[in-house]
C-alpha cells in the first residue's frame, strides 16, 4: 500500500499560501487554500497575534508576511518536506515543471501578442479562430501540467489545490471568461506563477 500523501496543518497552509501569492485580501487567501473564508480569517488572526503576518491598509494592501513570518514559513516548509520524506519526488516534479514553464509562457505570450508580418502586436481578440487555437493548446498543455501536479500532490497533499485552481481557470476561460487566461488574479498564468514560487520556496531554491 502506498502511503497517503503528507497533509499540511491549517496554520502552515495559510501562512505558506501568503508566502506564495504575496499581499492578498481574505478572499484570495481562502481561494488559494481552499478553506472557507471564516476559517482562513481565524488562522490569519492567530498568525497575526504570533507576529507572523500583518494586515496593511490601503489600495494595494492586504494580508502579508512579516520577516518573522517568512522565516517561520521557510522553517515549517522545510520541516514538512523532511517529515514527508518526499524531497526527491518534489525535486523531480520541479524538473518537469521547468520543462513546461517556457511552453506555458509561450502560450500566455501568444494569447497577449500576435505576429503581424514579423512584428509582435497586441492580440486584440477580434479573431475567434486564433483565440480558439490558443485555448485548445492550453487545454492540451493542461493535461501535461496536471500530471505534474498529480505527482506533486502524491508527495505533498497541499499541491492538490493547484489542480483545482488550474482546472477552474481553464474551464472559465473556455466558457468565455477570457480574463482567466492571463489577466485576473485567479488566471491560469497567475496560479502557475504562484506554483513556480511555491516550488522554489518548498525546495529552498533562491530566485536568483
Amino acid at each position: 500500500m502506498p502511503e497517503s500523501p503528507y497533509p499540511t496543518s491549517t496554520d502552515v497552509l495559510v501562512l505558506h499560501a501568503l508566502r506564495c501569492i504575496g499581499f492578498a485580501g481574505l478572499a484570495r487567501v481562502a481561494e488559494a487554500t481552499g478553506l472557507p473564508e471564516s476559517d482562513a480569517e481565524s488562522e490569519l488572526i492567530d498568525l497575526a497575534v504570533a507576529g507572523l503576518v500583518t494586515c496593511v491598509p490601503g489600495d494595494f494592501g492586504g494580508w502579508g508576511l512579516t520577516e518573522a513570518g517568512r522565516a517561520a514559513d521557510a522553517e515549517w516548509i522545510r520541516g514538512e518536506l523532511e517529515a514527508a520524506g518526499t524531497r526527491t519526488a518534489v525535486a523531480g516534479a520541479y524538473d518537469d515543471f521547468l520543462v513546461l514553464n517556457p511552453e506555458l509562457l509561450d502560450l500566455c505570450t501568444a494569447w497577449q501578442m500576435r505576429s503581424a508580418d514579423g512584428a509582435a502586436v497586441p492580440n486584440d481578440h477580434t479573431d475567434p479562430a486564433y483565440d480558439a487555437r490558443v485555448l485548445d493548446l492550453f487545454t492540451d498543455f493542461h493535461r501535461r501540467a496536471d500530471a505534474v501536479c498529480a505527482d506533486l500532490s502524491a508527495a505533498m497533499l497541499r499541491f492538490q489545490r493547484y489542480r483545482v485552481r488550474f482546472a477552474t481557470a481553464l474551464a472559465r476561460a473556455r466558457s468565455g471568461a477570457v480574463e482567466y487566461v492571463t489577466d485576473n488574479l485567479d488566471s491560469y498564468h497567475i496560479v502557475w506563477f504562484q506554483l513556480h514560487e511555491d516550488l522554489l520556496a518548498t525546495l529552498g531554491i533562491p530566485r536568483d
Partner: peptide, 15 residues
C-alpha cells in the same frame, strides 16, 4: 534585469 519577452514579468505587465 533578467527574463525575456516571454517571462512571468512580461506576461503580468501585459495583463
Amino acid at each position: 534585469a533578467r527574463g525575456g519577452p516571454a517571462s512571468h514579468a512580461a506576461v503580468v505587465a501585459r495583463a
